[in-house]
Nucleic acid binder design. Structure first.
Length: 933
RNA sequence: GCCCGGAUGGUGGAAUGGUAGACACGAAGGACUUAAAAUCCUUUGGCUUCACGGCUGUGCGGGUUCAAGUCCCGCUUCGGGUACCA
């Protein structure tokens, strides 16, 4: 019987499906384990061979944990809302739901072939109303809460209203967009509209005018993590700054908790570091500067309060509110011209072009410590969004201030003894202060502390912690996303009642903005809210009395992916996102596998969302993902042919230097071991039908290079083809065998024969021609040693996610058993169970061949018996001055001095020493002998 | 600029401070076969030697150690993240 992988894999996939082998239920008798993959966005291109890498890794771990006796939750679903489907809809008129469903079906077909142990009864799609009603629900919860800074926790907004009614803003410490102060009396005398407007300043989901990243090409705003270097991450379109009234989530309120939480989870240091930088905590002081000749003052933020004596000018961000206050009539036109110029520049231009620009406002500030007068400038190197949007400039010790001072010829006062500032600023936080009044003689560190103390005592400012993390803009001017459960009355937002969710995404005729520039939902014919009857009605009936307009924006991509891991726990619950009982069992994700590209997006938003739900008591764990592993990227390995210039003749790689050639990408699927299949090449493209070839050794050898896997490079390898030619088990093993899971590495189909041969060889221990070879003979010590060595290694490697080395261990074991001609059941049965996580189909087949009726998935993972591994003798490497010269086989229990004596007595030792006396002899029992002379 | 990773044969990669190159691909040679495929066996870092063996070798330069791919210091270089963040 031959190893017929096609038959075996189809048979067991059907059997597993029929028996619900991977269906998971709560089972209090077993410990739980939750393994999650980052769910995919189903793109039209389908899966290439790089996508399943992480899925295979998590599948192995899931199966391993199950064999170890855990109740394993391992679900899968689709991040189904997104731009590509919508842009395809704009081009073709095809409804995004149609495209998305088609792509999902294709993904599912591809995934099914690989033999994953997903519980598909728990599948979710973010665009499914049964799912997105909980995204809408969460948004309403956020609208109904504010963040209490003292408790560091979300609280119902009603508590804040009670507070305002009783004592106004007196004594409150809550996160808000803008600091407000009013009395209880003032609050109580405000109209409903005014009160609601104020509350938006405090809600966790709030509507506000803010500076947003507007992407004209995509026709929508983008969040900070969706923009990189001034262009959109998706598509690379330019982004500009605009003020717009948009929904935002007060993620910044959770900055400290997001930072602290990192210490409690098992993520890689580099990922934690990325999040730390993104959150960007910096401790400093906020200081007040008075304006000369006026009764106003303004605040700046600095981490270098110690440099206060070196402030020679101030800088305001162009968007700062202080600009108006500071600009004198004489300077008004110059300032206006400058603001105009700044406004015209896109984010990208500003980043690429670092010219020093700025304008003098005409006003002066008073240094609160030294009392000197300081000119106030305006420049776009100061950002409105960070700190207070105003800085004190210390050109001697800040390179940006230095460049500005040099450009505009402003004075520079050095503050550190002996520092050289003739060419550049001295930015290091070290040295002894000078020119600094009461700080003279102190080190920088001490001076910072001393200034902070001084600032607080003299009440010219306060210690302040700033975060770089911004609130998340939550509105998108797109069609294919979750509709907001919001309608507008008097221009103010009101939430739909929770029982009326989901608010379904309406149908529209075209997926474009309206003629008046409204988002696509502006085209919906049924997009009014009948408040009295609590239902959606015709847009034409909107009268702003009883029928109100619904929100036209939709939610961004990260909305649906922020809590999906919770929904998998309880996917069919129609009373809540997840019931508390179910959440108490599954708690959080024990192992999360996915790419690093989500480090500053999804992984921040999810943690924020989870913390918010934790505050509400909906979930029991504060962190959603306990352990996280980033799988590396699978790169493409492109092949080239070399066309001789101006001909249709192609020259083989090692002869190309004799000609003038152009390298041309050739489809890797018509190349094998870098040898071109000439016939296939001629048929690949009509242009090459008549191609001529200059061969070497009768072959055409292609060149190759590692680059991104993409259609345009013709280096995309499809997992379906691999499964068809080698089987899913071979694909799974080979993907793991390629190298460490976290490392990026190129895909090269060439090596796949090795793991395929391994499976065939394993098969050959069971079957020869039509004979079943397995017997019940007693295993020998060597056979047991081979097996248990492998059990030990594989167990250790799985726990440490070192899958490439476990595949190697399997190969070694099978090679050993093969040369021992071992077909003993006592050895093969544990081996088959051990292999189950990696190659479940062949394992299931062989397990049944060994006489089992039930699935191997429910078997017990073998345990290593150390007593089989004990060695009687050890081969000691005998080295001289660190260089190994020969080995000596000695009994394992030989004491140290005996080993030394035996080694010294050896004639080869004598030869090596050549009459010299050893200075020192190192014996590491069980390891090595080193003789120094 | 700052932060985080890497750099080991022709290739992918192994290696708790203890015989560098496990395992696999590829290549070369051989067996079986009319032939091919499949399978099996042998060799395979480089230089050198008929051979035993010797020399050399983990990006570069130093150091620590009886012993360094591994630890420390200083570079080179390739990835990734991030940035007028005060």
């Amino acid at each position: 019987m031959e190893y017929n992988f096609r038959e075996i894999e189809q048979k067991w996939q059907a059997e597993w499906k029929k028996n619900g082998t991977y269906k998971t239920e709560i089972d209090n008798s077993k410990p739980k384990f939750y393994v999650l993959d980052m769910f995919p966005y189903p793109s039209g291109a389908g899966l290439h061979v790089g996508h399943p890498l992480g899925y295979i890794a998590s599948d192995i771990y899931s199966r391993y944990k199950r064999l170890k006796g855990y109740n394993v939750l391992h679900p899968m679903g689709y991040d189904a809302y997104g731009l590509p489907a919508e842009q395809y809809a704009i081009q073709t008129g095809q409804h995004p739901a149609v495209t998305t469903t088609k792509n999902i079906n294709r993904y599912r077909e591809q995934l099914d072939k690989i033999g994953f142990c997903y519980d598909w009864t728990r599948e979710i799609r973010t665009c499914d109303p049964g799912y997105y009603q909980w995204t809408q629900w969460a948004f309403i919860q956020m609208f109904n809460c504010y963040f209490d800074n003292n408790l560091q926790k979300a609280q119902p907004i009603q508590q804040l209203v009670d507070q305002f009614e009783k004592s106004g803003t007196e004594g409150i410490n809550v996160t808000c967009t803008e600091t407000m102060e009013f009395s209880a009396q003032a609050w109580n005398s405000k109209t409903e509209k005014e009160q609601q407007e104020i509350l938006l300043n405090y809600r966790i989901a709030y509507l506000a005018n803010m500076k947003v990243n507007w992407c004209p090409a995509l026709g929508t705003v983008l969040a900070n993590d969706e923009v990189s270097e001034g262009v959109s991450v998706r598509g690379g379109h330019p982004v500009e700054q605009r003020i717009m009234r948009q929904w935002s989530l007060r993620v910044s309120a959770y900055a400290q908790r997001l930072l602290d939480g990192l210490d409690t989870i098992d993520w890689t240091d580099s990922l934690k570091e990325t999040q730390k930088n993104w959150i960007g905590r910096s401790e400093g002081a906020e200081m007040k500067f008075k304006l000369k000749g006026q009764d106003t003052e303004f605040e700046i933020f600095t981490t270098r309060a110690d440099t206060i004596y070196g402030v020679t000018f101030m800088v305001l961000a162009p968007e700062s509110d202080y600009v108006k206050v500071c600009t004198t009539p004489e300077q008004a036109s110059a300032v206006e011209a400058y603001l105009d110029q700044v406004k015209k520049r896109t984010e990208r231009e500003r980043i690429s072009d670092r010219r020093v620009t700025g304008v003098f406002s005409g006003s002066y500030a008073i240094n609160p410590v030294s009392g000197t007068e300081i000119p106030i400038w305006i420049s776009d190197y100061v950002l409105a969004g960070y700190g207070t949007g105003a800085i004190m400039a210390v050109p001697a010790h800040d390179s940006r201030d230095y460049a500005f001072a040099k450009h505009f010829n402003l004075s520079i006062i050095p503050l550190i003894e002996g520092c050289d500032i003739s060419e550049e600023s001295f930015d290091a936080k070290e040295g002894i202060l000078t020119n600094s009044g009461f700080l003279n003689g102190l080190t920088v560190k001490k001076a910072i502390a001393a200034t902070k103390k001084y600032v607080e005592e003299k009440q010219i400012g306060r210690i302040k912690v700033n975060y770089r993390l911004r609130d998340a803009i939550f509105s998108r001017q797109r069609y294919w996303g979750e509709p907001f459960p919001v309608y507008y009355k008097n221009g103010l937002p009101y939430m739909l009642p929770i029982e009326k969710l989901p608010l379904l995404l309406p149908e529209i005729d075209k997926y474009l903005p309206t003629e008046t520039g409204e988002p696509p939902l502006g085209r919906a014919l049924n997009w009014g809210w009948n408040e009295a009857e609590q239902k959606v009605t015709a847009t034409s009936e909107i009268d702003n009395q009883n029928i109100f307009p619904l929100e036209l924006n939709t939610m961004p991509g990260f909305a649906g992916s922020s809590a999906y891991y919770l929904r998998y726990m309880d996917p069919h619950n129609d009373k809540g996102l997840v019931s508390r009982e179910v959440d108490d069992y599954w708690r959080n994700v024990d192992l999360y596998i996915g790419g690093t590209e989500h480090a500053t997006g999804h992984l921040i938003y999810s943690r924020f969302w989870n913390k918010f739900l934790f505050d509400l008591g909906i979930v029991c764990e504060e962190e959603p993902f306990k352990k996280l592993i980033n799988q590396g990227m699978i790169q493409g390995r492109s092949n080239f042919v070399y066309r001789i210039k101006d001909t249709n003749t192609f020259v083989s790689l090692n002869l190309k230097n004799q000609y003038e050639t152009t390298p041309i990408h050739v489809d890797v699927n018509i190349v094998s071991n870098d040898i071109l299949d000439i016939e296939k090449f001629r048929n690949w493209n009509p242009e090459y039908k008549t191609a001529e070839f200059i061969l070497e050794d009768g072959k055409y050898i292609c060149g190759w290079v590692v680059e991104k896997m993409s259609k345009s490079m013709y280096n995309v390898v499809n997992p379906d083809d691999i499964v068809e030619n080698y089987g899913a088990d071979t694909l799974r093993l080979y993907e793991m065998f390629l190298g460490p899971i976290e490392q990026s590495k190129p895909w090269d189909t060439n090596g796949i024969d090795g793991v395929h041969r391994f499976l065939k060889r394993l098969w050959s221990l069971f079957y020869k021609e039509n004979k079943f070879l397995v017997n019940n003979n007693e295993p020998t010590a060597d056979e047991l040693k081979s097996l248990h060595k492998t059990i030990k290694k594989v167990t250790y490697d799985i726990e440490n996610f070192s899958y490439n080395t476990s595949v190697a261990a399997f190969m070694i074991c099978v090679n050993e058993l093969f040369s021992m001609k071992c077909s003993k059941k006592a050895i093969l049965e544990p081996l088959v169970i051990l292999l189950t996580p990696f190659a479940p189909h062949i394992a299931e087949e062989l397990y049944h061949a060994l006489g089992h009726e039930s699935t191997v998935c429910n078997a017990e993972f073998p345990v290593c018996n150390e007593s089989y591994l004990v060695e009687n003798s050890i081969k000691y490497p005998i080295s001289f001055n660190g260089k190994v010269r020969f080995t000596l086989e000695l009994p394992a229990d030989m004491p140290r001095d005996e080993v030394e004596k035996t080694a010294m007595a050896n004639e080869q030792t004598e030869k090596q020493l050549d009459g010299k006396t050893p200075k020192k002899i190192i014996v590491v029992p069980g390891k090595i002998v080193n003789i120094v002379f």
